[in-house]
Each structure stands twice: as C-alpha cells, then as structure tokens.
C-alpha cells in the first residue's frame, strides 16, 4: 500500500494537469464557434464543451479512456477498428525484429570480444548506424526490400532489429568483458581454451548485462515496428492507426493508439524483467 499511494498521487496530478491543459487548448475553438455564431460564451458554458469535442486539439483523459476501451474491447478482435488487431500486427513485427536484433547483437558482441579486427571495425559502424534518423532510413528499407519482393512482416521486423541490436551489442560487449584479470588468469592456470573461457566464464558473467540490454532493446524494437508502419501506406498496425488519426484529425484515435503502444512496451519490459528474475535466481545470482 505504501508504494501505491505515491504512484496514485502522481497519477492524479498528471490527470488534473491534463484536464487543465485540455480546457486551455480546446477553448479557442469553442470561442471561435461562438464568435462566428455571434453569441457570447461564458467560461461556465465553455468548460463542458471542451470535454466533448469531436476533434479536440488535446482530448480529455476520459475521451482517450473511452477510445481505448472501445478499441480494445468494443470490437471483434479481427476488426480493422480493433486496437487488439492493430496491436498484434505491430507486436508480431516487434517480436520478430527483437529476435533478429538480439541474435545479431549477441553474435556481433561475441565477434567483437574475440576478434581484434572486429573490435576495431564493427563498433564505429554500429554507433554510426544509430546516428542515422530511423525515420529517414525506414522508407529506404521498405522500398529496397519491396523491390526484391519482400514485403509484409519482414521489412518492419528489420527496422525493429536495426534499432534493437545496438543496446544488445553494447551491453553484451561490456558483459563478456566483465570478468576481471584475476578470473581470466585463473582459467589460464587451468590452460583453458578460449571456448571453455567463453562458455564457463564470459557468457554466464554477461547475463545481468544481457537482460538490461534486452529491456532497452525490446522498447526500441516496438518503436522500430511502429516507425516501419508509417511509410507502408498505413494499412495495419499501431503505426497505421497513428497515421490515419493524423490524416483525419482523429486525435482521440492517435492518443488511444499511443497508449496501446505504451502499455505494450511496459508489458514487454515487465515480461523480460520476470524472465531475468527467474533466470538469475536459478543461476544463483539473485539473493
């Protein structure tokens, strides 16, 4: 209970500020309407109107909540208006991209730690890859892959992987290098091979680092999948909902899709946290 009270307090403050902002941002439109009709409008009359606009600049929290509820529970989950349907489209690309990104990240990290040439050559490119705005490169990836006949899930997954491999590389390189000189000397006294050093020391020692990276990586993978949906003509996925919403000024729809994405990200990070706890406990590394 002690943990819940501060969280609810912060939430209440955010909601209150949000309502205040909604009134402030939606009021000009109501005043405009009144002016056109040639009538005067008092603040008391204006206040309820700012809460129920069709296309508010900033939808009030309850409007977003209703939008979310209708999107998640008010439709058949196969419907094109269902956030569950769109969420799944995005999630499947996220998970595939995350799997590709994590595999690539771990393999690159293993290469960097064991091969001096890779150590010197790969890392600068990995860093450079992340300085390119994803919004600029995503359409290129879609177009290029489309021209060789690859479309659908995979191009989006590749954009996801593009964002999610980086934290995994950085974390795993650090993790694989975390054993200190004494630990490495100990294995030298056993005349241990590099393979034995990797499997018995470097890999287990890197596990805490890996999980931290995976949490960052999966959130990045979700962003990648959403960005990957923007230039595809906005057919399906949370990215498509965001784009459609902005075409038609459906701000409630945008916010509902944003919240769905945020909840999905939180759930994915929590899932990895749970796997981390179980794994580290079974390894004896959690107290």
């Amino acid at each position: 209970m002690k943990a819940v009270v501060p969280i609810l307090t912060v939430l209440a403050v955010i909601v209150a500020l949000w309502y205040a902002a909604a009134v402030w941002m939606n009021a000009p439109w109501e005043r405009d309407q009144a002016a056109r009709a040639g009538t005067a409008i008092t603040f008391a009359q204006l206040l309820p109107l700012t809460m129920v606009q069709e296309r508010p600049v900033l939808p009030a929290p309850h409007q977003v909540a209703v939008g979310l509820w209708e999107g998640l529970a008010g439709q058949a989950i196969t419907s094109k208006r269902s956030l569950v349907y769109h969420g799944w489209v995005t999630l499947s690309a996220t998970l595939l991209g995350f799997a590709i990104g994590t595999t690539a990240g771990v393999l690159l990290a293993v290469g960097i730690v064991h091969n001096r040439a890779m150590d010197l050559s790969v890392m600068p490119w990995a860093i450079a890859s992340q300085t390119i705005p994803i919004l600029a490169i995503a359409p290129m990836i879609i177009v290029v892959l489309n021209s060789v006949g690859v479309s659908g899930l995979l191009p989006k997954a590749i954009i996801s992987a593009y964002l999610s491999f980086f934290p995994v590389v950085v974390g795993m390189v650090k993790g694989l290098r975390s054993p200190d000189a004494m630990q490495l000397d100990l294995l030298r006294t056993y005349n241990a091979s590099r393979a034995a050093t990797f499997w018995k020391l470097r890999l287990p020692a890197s596990m805490p680092y890996l999980f931290t990276s995976l949490k960052v990586g999966i959130a990045a993978a979700l962003v990648g999948a959403i960005v990957g949906e923007l230039p595809t003509g906005a057919v399906a996925g949370l990215g498509a909902r965001l784009l459609q919403g902005s075409y038609y000024g459906q701000t409630v729809q945008i916010w509902a899709a944003l919240f769905t994405a945020a909840f999905a990200a939180a759930a994915l990070v929590a899932l990895i946290g749970a796997v981390q706890r179980v794994t580290l406990r079974r390894m004896g590394m959690a107290r």
Binding site: M182, Q183, L186, L201, P204, A205, M207, M283, G284, M285
Partner: peptide, 8 residues
C-alpha cells in the same frame, strides 16, 4: 581474492 563464480 577467492574469486568464486557467483553463479556456481
């Protein structure tokens, strides 16, 4: 230092 592996 004993340097035992914490995961073993």
């Amino acid at each position: 230092a004993a340097g035992l592996y914490p995961w073993r």
